[in-house]
Structure formats: structure tokens, C-alpha cells
Amino acid sequence: MSASRLSVFLFLAALATTLTGCDAIAGIFKAGAYTGIIAVFIVVALLFFIVSKMRGPRP
């Protein structure tokens, strides 16, 4: 892959990532603060659940 193609690919990947994040933040602000708080709580709970499953059972 040439350098120009790689730079275009990286630019498009960065653009796609940032636009998706901006749309998500805009949606949370439109929905309201309580919706944002609930969404953050759900994400943190999901991460905690995944990490606890990866560690395995505790004796």
C-alpha cells in the first residue's frame, strides 16, 4: 500500500471515528442529563461485569 493511500485511509478512519462520537454526544445532550447519567452507569456496569467474568470465580 502506498503512502498516499495509507494516509487517506487513516484520515477516513479518524473522520469516521470522530463523527460517530460527536453524533453520540449530541444525542445524549438532546435526550437530557438523566439519560446521559443512566447511559454512563450502564456502560460502567457492563465493563465491571466483563472484567469480573474475565477474572473468574473468587474462592
Rank of each mutant, 00 (worst) to 15 (best):
Met1Gln: 13
Met1Gly: 15
Ser2Lys: 11
Ser2Gly: 15
Ser2Met: 02
Ala3Lys: 06
Ser4Pro: 07
Ser4Thr: 07
Arg5Gly: 02
Arg5Ser: 05
Ser7Leu: 04
Ser7Gly: 01
Ser7Ile: 03
Val8Leu: 09
Phe9Glu: 08
Leu10Met: 09
Phe11Gly: 11
Phe11Met: 06
Leu12His: 03
Ala13Pro: 06
Ala14His: 04
Ala14Ile: 02
Ala14Phe: 05
Leu15Asp: 00
Ala16Gln: 06
Ala16Ser: 09
Thr17Val: 11
Thr17Arg: 14
Thr17Lys: 10
Thr18Gly: 03
Leu19Arg: 08
Thr20Gly: 00
Gly21Lys: 08
Gly21Thr: 08
Asp23Gly: 07
Asp23Pro: 03
Asp23Glu: 15
Asp23Gln: 13
Asp23Met: 14
Ala26Glu: 14
Ala26Met: 13
Gly27Ser: 13
Gly27Asp: 10
Gly27Ala: 12
Ile28Asp: 04
Ile28Pro: 00
Phe29Cys: 09
Phe29Ala: 11
Lys30Gly: 09
Lys30Leu: 05
Lys30Asn: 12
Lys30Trp: 09
Lys30Tyr: 08
Ala31Glu: 13
Gly32Ala: 05
Ala33Trp: 00
Ala33Lys: 03
Tyr34Asp: 14
Thr35Asn: 10
Gly36Asp: 01
Gly36Glu: 01
Ile37His: 03
Ile38Gln: 10
Ala39Met: 08
Ala39Arg: 05
Val40Ala: 15
Val40Gln: 01
Val40Arg: 00
Val40Cys: 15
Phe41Ala: 14
Ile42Glu: 06
Ile42Gln: 08
Ile42Val: 11
Val43Ser: 06
Val43Tyr: 15
Val44Ser: 07
Ala45Lys: 01
Ala45Ser: 03
Leu47Phe: 14
Leu47Asp: 02
Leu47Asn: 01
Phe48Glu: 05
Phe49Gly: 01
Val51Met: 04
Ser52His: 07
Lys53Cys: 04
Met54Phe: 12
Met54Tyr: 10
Arg55His: 08
Arg55Gln: 12
Arg55Pro: 01
Arg55Phe: 09
Gly56Cys: 06
Gly56Ile: 08
Pro57Cys: 02
Arg58Ala: 12
Pro59Ala: 13
Pro59Val: 06
Pro59Lys: 12
